[in-house]
Amino acid sequence: MRITDKMMFERGNAATAAARGRVADFQNQVSTGLRVQHPGDDPGAASAIVGGALAQSRSDAIVKTAAKAQDDATVADGALQGMTQIVARAQELAVQLSNDTYSPSERASAAKEVDGLHSQMVALLNTSVAGRYLFGGTKDGAPPFDAAGNYSGDTNTKQLEVAPGMLENASLRMDVFAKGSGGGVDILSTLSSLSAAMTSGSSSAIEGMLGAITTGTSQLSTALSQNGVMISSFASAQTLGQLASQQAQKGVADAGDTDMFTAASSLAEASQALQASLSATAQGFKLSLLNYMGG
């Protein structure tokens, strides 16, 4: 092939430009830490980055939501424990005062304690977190129970996402567990009735309340159990969500981040190639007949 001067200069230009381009590419990868910046750099990886970023965002959000839900359920657990103790004390008083040996004044005094238990029960049923009442179903903007024990919450159960597309109950139906809706006993009414029975001084009436109190205890036990399941479920959601988030983050990094060792070694290689290209180009330019023809 016939080699012309223009060819040599243009080849020199093209070769050094290509070598410099490669050096710049690797420098950019090393300095930004990113291998894929434009979708055209690696379409499959770009798609994986988008999917991974969305999955990570979803998992992170689930973890946060589950953490708050677990906090709520933990507060609810404390309240339910308190309610169980109240009912246990009521039961203890009922058993104790169903004995005929107690005087009317002693029974009246016990009735006052039961009234106090009623008030405590109402207070616990109106437990709130940051102004949000936990036992009113989804009607959480106002106390669900009044002083008399009437329920003004709704019959809905709040649900939350614990995994993509999977929902878990996040509230308890206290109209069921405390008020006996659907076949149980109304614990608050039971306490009121117990107080009335004690005031009336009828041992048999007091004794007659024991069955309802036992059922109430059982209802609260079920509520505690369901609440425990919720706590456990939200804890698992956080663990799994964190794992999913880490996995998604790793997927994004694997797809789009620079492998520093490879990039650094490629940068060194490209720099060597540039040096060689510059040297070869300069050598080529030195060789000319002009250098050997005397003036």
Binding site: V36, Q37, S57, R58, A61, K64
Partner: peptide, 22 residues
């Protein structure tokens, strides 16, 4: 549509659904 750009569409889409979750 740069996949790793800050303020990208996919990050806004993710943030939107995260907002709903909260």
């Amino acid at each position: 549509l740069d996949p790793q750009a800050s303020g990208s569409l996919q990050s806004a889409l993710g943030a939107f659904y995260s907002g709903l979750r909260s």
